[in-house]
């Protein structure tokens, strides 16, 4: 087997074996970067992260009990260049519940002033990416 072929096999193996988790820490770093301005505004950032990898247009729903009276910001980030993420929040009946949202390149955010205590669904979606799977991480803050 010539060296070029060996290199190509090794390269394809690396691609196959490279788990999504390999960059999850970078995705978390991105998400933490996105929440930073809100922490400066007095939001308490939960010291916990949710994440994984998604294909283009694939969604992930994260059910969460939100409490009426709290003001939440949910932020999502990825380290994949040129990728675009979206995050939106729906109530248990599937009605959009966010008061504000934004999307800037690798980051996106949604704010909810929970009108009632109950289960809400945070929907994360990869809306653009050059990669087959895009690693993402979500964090949130409240006040």
């Amino acid at each position: 087997m010539n060296i070029v072929r060996r290199f190509l096999i090794l390269l394809s193996l690396c691609t196959l074996l490279s788990p999504a988790d390999a960059t999850i820490d970078d995705a978390i770093t991105s998400a933490l970067q996105a929440i930073d301005p809100y922490v400066k505004q007095g939001y308490i950032a939960r010291d916990d992260q949710w994440g994984g990898d998604l294909g283009l247009r694939e969604q992930k729903a994260i059910p969460h009990t939100l409490f009426r009276g709290n003001d939440y910001w949910f932020l999502v980030g990825t380290d994949v260049d040129n990728a675009r993420l979206a995050i939106h929040v729906y109530d248990s009946k599937g009605k959009i519940a966010e008061n504000d949202s934004w999307q800037k390149g690798r980051f996106a955010g949604a704010r909810v002033l929970a009108p009632a205590t109950g289960t809400y669904y945070i929907i994360v979606e990869v809306t653009g990416s050059t990669k087959e799977r895009t690693t993402w991480a979500m964090v949130y803050g409240y006040k």
Binding site: R46, P63, F67, N70, T119, Y142
Partner: peptide, 17 residues
């Protein structure tokens, strides 16, 4: 398959309210 586990809120989220 696209539904995550329920997020358990932290006690401080309740006490905050």
């Amino acid at each position: 398959t696209q539904l995550d586990d329920v997020v358990v809120p932290l006690p401080s989220e309740v006490f905050n309210v």
